[in-house]
Simulated scan of single mutants.
Amino acid sequence: MRYPGRVVKVGETDARIVKALKTALNKALVLRGSEAIVLEPDNPAFGPQMKQAVKLFQARHLDEQGQPLKTDGEVGSLTWAALFGPADVPQHVQPHDPLLVTVLAVAGSQADAGVREQPRNSNRGPEVDDYLRRAGMQPGVAWCCAFTYWCFDEASRQTGQANPMFKTAGCLHHWQNAPGQGARRLLARDAVADPGRVQPGAIFIMDFGGGLGHTGLVERIEGGYIHTIEGNTDASQGREGGGVYRLQRKLASINKGFIDYA
């Protein structure tokens, strides 16, 4: 059964969804004796007992990447995939917008080339300096957003069109000003509820407080996970890493939202 595009929790009113979940939970848990939780599929209520069953399932199962599920008694995309299989949650692998296809190709070329800061931990290097200058900044500062701008600018030059991205090297500055460029913003909570709304080529924004943030490009979406191409990071997924990397992040780890220039 396909993921309905929202988190399913206590109070759900769609009897068809509740019945499918109860049937799947009964099959997955198979408990007996005093521990038994037997749900009635024909009862359309998502109540406390069903929440308890969901929490038990989450405690005993991993997501498709082998990571623990959040034990909250709510059925989001990761729990749905664990119950019904990853094919029943959103999978997006290719942008529909030709410019964004080129943006991801440009970004991927930098990841494949293994761009790194020179020297380490300096926010400098031939490519890094170019990213920053293109975004209107002097070399030597955090450059994740400048990398994203450079990818859009290179793609726009290659395709002979104007760069639609707001020119900035600041992640949160970008978030504030992107709508003025015609971009659409998707709040983090709405993306978690419905991963199908996140498209390849979108830009994720993370907010760490105090004006600090991190950003990168979404290469593809697999249910509750996004695969990204990012600058100024590393395998630790930090915001002050030393290169351009392809990474995988839980969708729920993106706490600000997404910007879409499609």
Rank of each mutant, 00 (worst) to 15 (best):
P4V: 11
G5H: 10
V10T: 13
R16Q: 12
A20F: 01
A20H: 06
A28L: 13
L29M: 06
V30R: 15
V30H: 13
L31I: 00
L31C: 01
S34V: 13
I37M: 13
V38S: 15
E40I: 09
E40M: 07
P41Y: 09
D42V: 03
N43I: 03
P44R: 14
P48H: 02
Q49M: 15
Q49V: 12
V54Y: 04
L56N: 10
H61Q: 08
Q65L: 13
G66P: 08
G66R: 08
V75D: 07
W80G: 01
A82S: 15
P90M: 06
P95F: 07
H96I: 08
L99H: 04
L100R: 10
L104S: 08
L104Q: 10
A107S: 05
A107F: 02
S109K: 08
A113D: 15
G114Y: 09
N121I: 12
P126H: 12
E127S: 14
V128D: 01
L132S: 01
R133N: 05
V141S: 10
C151A: 14
C151V: 02
F152Y: 15
G160V: 06
Q161M: 14
A162V: 11
A162W: 01
M165A: 07
G170V: 03
H174L: 14
P179K: 03
G180N: 08
G182K: 02
A183G: 06
L187W: 15
R189S: 14
V192R: 06
V198Y: 06
P200L: 13
I203E: 02
F204C: 07
G213K: 04
G216P: 10
G216W: 08
E222S: 13
G224D: 05
Y225W: 11
T228G: 03
A235D: 14
G242L: 03
G243M: 09
Q248N: 14
Q248L: 15
K256S: 07
I259K: 01
I259N: 02
D260L: 08
D260C: 05
D260N: 11
D260S: 10
